[in-house]
Design a protein around this nucleic acid. Sequence first.
DNA 1: AAGCTTTCCAACCGCTTTGTA
DNA 2: TTACAAAGCGGTTGGAAAGCT
Length: 306
Amino acid sequence: MGRSPCCCHDAGVKKGPWTEEEDKALVEHIQKRGGNVGSWRGLPKAAGLNRCGKSCRLRWTNYLRPDIKRGNFSDEEERLIITLHAGLGNKWSTIATHLEGRTDNEIKNYWNTHIRKKLLRMGVDPVTHQQLPPDQTNHDVNGAAAALLWAAAAVSLGGLDTGALMQAQLLQQLLQAIGSNNSTTGLIANLAAANTVLNSSSSFVPNQMNYLQTGYLCNNSNLSEQHVVQQQLTNDTSPGTSSFAAAEPADQLCNTAASYDVAPAGDWSLTQEFGGLLEPMMELPGLCSLEGDSFWKDILEDSYRL
DNA sequence: AAGCTTTCCAACCGCTTTGTA
DNA sequence: TTACAAAGCGGTTGGAAAGCT
């Protein structure tokens, strides 16, 4: 497997941004051949371009190809990228095969400039898709957790009505938690409380159970299907390694991501900030078990001390 | 308004994989 | 089986645009 001698090293071959004339020449040449490029190496000469064949190929595949979809990524595309990335790692070309009209380069750029930062803001490691340690986490939830836990406890004990007030409060607290900075304990407490409120308020998202976990908010009406997703993503894969890539991994993942609506658009605007179901599920006990379950008691005490 | 910093993305570089003689 | 050419791929860079002071 020798290294390919690349014409890009030839003296006099133009580099840098393409001009309109060059684009036109390349497109016309390929169209004349009915879309059949043939040899990229021989293309520049045939098309009258002073460019390396490799440069022509990249320009065509990443920019000039007629089936390329331009414009912002949709939430659905973003969720799919996150889901696929959790299993495949930086296999951009494989990921790209599941996003119609998107190139690997575009997805890679979008990941590095948008998704990666968003995950970090959420306290999620963009490489492992796991919750970051507390000192690297950006969540601030202590204040929010205290207020929300109070409300959740009150609801559970019958001291408050579960109505619009609770829903508004929940959203407000969650937004604070997402956008600011603090401890994992607080985060868990907040998510636990929010989980309880969601599940105790049937009017909030009718007929659906909502699960909150560190890092991700999950909204899925079918828990068993969700476990299938998670098993595929956690057991069969290890980001950065190739074990998952053995038997048509991308298809598995694509089917998974497509079949199981990870965070259905339109259910709840907040869910759009959270990408997927990539961590082991953390199903939290209800506050009705407050008396007998030290889980909630500990969290309440923690949040009280904040 | 000017200068500096940050963000974004097209394009490049070089290694790996695939095809073929 | 081996060697080489060509294509594919992922990491990185450079510079334009946007944002900030």
